[in-house]
Simulated assay, not measured.
Amino acid sequence: MQKPIRVWFEKTGAAIYISHLDLNRCMARAVRRAKLPIWYTEGFHPHPYLTFPLPLSLGVHGLREAMDLRLVEEMPLDEVKERLNCCLPQGLLVTGVTEPAEKAKEIAFADYELTMEAPGADTAALVREALGKDALPVEKKTKSGVKEVDIRPHLQGLSVETQGERCLVKATLPCGSSLSINPSLLAQAVTAACGQPVKIVKTVRLRFCNAQMQLFA
Rank of each mutant, 00 (worst) to 15 (best):
A135S: 15
D78E: 14
E82F: 06
R83C: 09
A125I: 09
F9P: 13
A192S: 14
M213G: 05
A135T: 15
E148R: 14
V31L: 14
C194L: 10
P46D: 01
P37A: 00
F52H: 05
V198P: 14
S178T: 15
A14Y: 01
P137A: 02
R64Q: 12
K202Q: 14
S177Y: 01
Y49W: 10
C167G: 04
P100K: 07
P174Q: 05
N24T: 06
E161W: 09
N24P: 04
V97Q: 02
K3H: 13
T191K: 01
C86D: 13
C175N: 02
K11D: 05
V31P: 07
P46Q: 12
K105N: 03
C209G: 02
E106L: 02
N182E: 14
M75F: 08
T41K: 01
K147H: 04
A121L: 04
V160W: 09
R166H: 05
G43V: 07
A124H: 06
K199D: 01
A28C: 03
Q212Y: 02
S57D: 08
K35D: 12
L206S: 11
R128S: 09
G176W: 06
D111A: 06
S177G: 00
P197R: 07
A217C: 12
E10I: 04
R205D: 01
L50K: 03
T142H: 08
R166V: 00
T51Q: 03
A14L: 03
L136D: 10
K140Y: 02
M75H: 00
E129D: 14
M27D: 03
G59H: 11
A171M: 01
A211Y: 00
E113H: 11
V190R: 02
A187P: 14
P53Q: 05
A30H: 04
G120F: 09
C175T: 07
A193W: 10
E165M: 00
D111N: 10
L136A: 03
Q90L: 08
L50F: 05
I200F: 01
L92I: 13
T142N: 01
P183M: 11
R128N: 09
K199S: 14
I181V: 08
N210S: 01
Q212S: 10
L54E: 05
I18T: 12
R29Q: 06
S159V: 09
V127R: 00
A217I: 00
H47Y: 05
T123S: 12
T95D: 13
K11R: 12
Y49C: 04
G120K: 04
I151H: 08
P119M: 07
V204I: 10
F109Y: 12
D78G: 15
I18Y: 08
Q2S: 08
E161V: 03
I151F: 03
T203Y: 07
R83M: 02
F52V: 00
N85M: 13
E161I: 05
E106N: 09
S144V: 13
Q156G: 00
T115G: 09
R6Q: 15
